[in-house]
Amino acid sequence: MTDKVETLYKNLSFIGKSRRDSQEIPSPVATAEKWDLIIRPKTGWFDLHLSDLWRYRDLTLLFVWRDFVAQYKQTILGPLWHLIQPLFTTALFTLVFSRVAKLSTDSLPPVLFYMAGVSCWNYFAECLNRTSATFIQNAAIFGKVYFPRLSVPVSVVLSNIIKFAIQFALFLVFVGFYYSQGAAIRPNIYVLLTPVLLLIMAALGLGLGIIVSSLTTKYRDLQVLVTFGVQLLMFVTPVIYPVSMLSQQYRWLILANPMTALVETFRYSFLGAGTFDLWHLIYSAGVTLMILCIGVVLFNHVERTFMDTV
């Protein structure tokens, strides 16, 4: 790593060569001691200055709060909309996919089956959709002041957790109701995995979102692609059908989707039916980590000059 910094620095000092011709090239450490901030043409791909994000944590939290407060000014139902949306989706899915299309629900009550899937999927899709517009939507403010750009997508992911919590509470109420009615559901010890699942979903949504948002600074096409891409993606995720229903031939395709294991595990832990495999979950976590890293690096790289390309 030190070697890397050293080479990087040499490359940079080459830029200002004529000025330094007669001088000795100072070591980066010595320069950093004296000045608080050095603005240079290009930072390396891995110079992520993530500590800035921590220093601006108040800003991130204020963005979360702004998202939540501003969204419901001048609405009558306010945050209740978060309940109505999953309720209607669940009702519709139950009607169409369970009653009309007669898809399997792993012998679970269809309402619970769909609601579990929809809650997870909504969270992921919202994270992805909203973070993917980061650069374009915030161009005006990014063009005026510096703050760690990552704080915007991170705040989106966090504020979506509030929405998820509301939908999750609704889901728990339904689980409780069905349980008391003696439905065949068996919540089990794996419910303790829920925060982990949420974390992976958040990271996956964030990672994909910032990759898309970095690329849209140049290719606006992607913005259109994301909107319906997310819709299509839902059909290769077991939201409206269980993995157990799939034939061996296509199963690998659905399992390759990192969201699959997350939705299935969530459902399994609260309802006690479905497919649970620790390896699938580890696979999801691995893919997510990779996507997130690529995303952060790419985002950071674009952030430096995107004002000139947007």
Binding site: K34, W35, D36, I38, I39, P41
Partner: peptide, 16 residues
């Protein structure tokens, strides 16, 4: 450039 909204093409700025 000073407010770090955009990066310079070359050169350096040092700030305290």
């Amino acid at each position: 450039i000073l407010s770090r909204v955009t990066a310079p093409t070359s050169g350096e700025v040092r700030v305290k």
